[in-house]
């Protein structure tokens, strides 16, 4: 069910600001692709164009093509709501719905899609929480509010919520940046497990993390303040971190800037 994503000639704008410029890349299925680069290089913006979340910001727009197994996400008949169903997302800060229980948080997306039968919901909620390595910690308090969990648990709850609807792609926008090291490790382990079933794209500030979890890495950069972000290079993670083709990548990897 995991799918290949092919991006070609993609530009994104915030009002009059050109945020990212002419990005083309292929994201392989059943693998983890990491986006790295300095702050403001457009990696998060680009990630949000992959499930059409970019355009929910007033004045924001996108040009170019994003093919999900040959189907253009930005095609004229494609409903962004349907796109977000198949391309799930996990955010930088854990954002479970505060008024809902743990159970209802996981079931939220399923209920939207018409799964109503209690036994079916129970099954999928359990599967998803197990899939997010959270089941054992919360199985006795499924009806407690999700906001009562620790930060790391909340983030795994958000992952469970995202995978409950069985997306084909999972986007993660710096999912560990608000977490402590132990929680980070738990999430990284989870990513390694999930990649057998999903196409995973992760934005990270942390280069060690990119090296640990990803199969392929894409490096983004900006030419200067106010200039749009660009894709500098993409390749096997091992290659990017050892023998990058571009000088800018090497400088960034070795910590000379950014």
């Amino acid at each position: 069910m995991a799918k290949r994503i092919e991006v070609s000639g993609l530009h994104a704008y915030y009002g009059g600001v050109h945020a990212i410029e002419d990005i083309s890349m292929t994201i392989e299925p059943r693998s983890v692709t990491a986006f790295i680069g300095p702050s403001g290089c457009g990696k998060s913006t680009f990630l949000r164009t992959l499930n059409r979340m970019h355009e929910v910001i007033p004045g924001a727009r996108v040009e170019g093509k994003v093919l999900l197994d040959d189907e253009d996400l930005y095609g004229p008949d494609v409903d962004p709501v349907a796109v977000r169903r198949v391309v799930g997302m996990v955010f930088q800060r854990p954002n479970p719905f505060p008024t809902m229980s743990i159970y209802d948080n996981v079931a939220a997306g399923l209920k939207l899609n018409g799964v109503r039968r209690k036994s079916r919901l129970d099954d999928i909620v359990e599967e998803s929480l197990k899939g997010a390595n959270l089941w054992n910690e919360v199985k006795d308090r499924l009806n407690k509010p999700g906001a009562g969990l620790s930060g790391g648990q909340q983030q795994r709850l958000c992952i469970a919520r995202a995978i409950a609807v069985q997306p084909q792609v999972l986007l993660m926008d710096e999912p560990c940046s608000a977490l402590d090291p132990i929680s980070t490790l738990a999430i990284e382990d989870l990513i390694a497990e999930l990649k057998s079933r999903y196409t995973i794209v992760i934005v990270t500030h942390n280069m060690q993390q990119a090296a640990r979890v990803s199969d392929r890495t894409a490096f983004f950069n900006i030419a200067g303040v106010g200039k749009p972000g660009r894709l500098i290079e993409i390749g096997e993670t091992s290659k990017i971190f050892t023998k990058p083709e571009q000088k800018a990548t090497e400088e960034y990897i070795t910590g000379r800037f950014g």
């Binding site: 499930n51 979340m53 929910v56 977000r84 799930g88 954002n95 719905f97």
Partner: peptide, 21 residues
Amino acid sequence: PRAHVEAALALGATRWEMIKL
């Protein structure tokens, strides 16, 4: 919070469903 709105939208909620969630 913007985060809750985005969480709902990212799950594939329509505008009304986002408001409800």
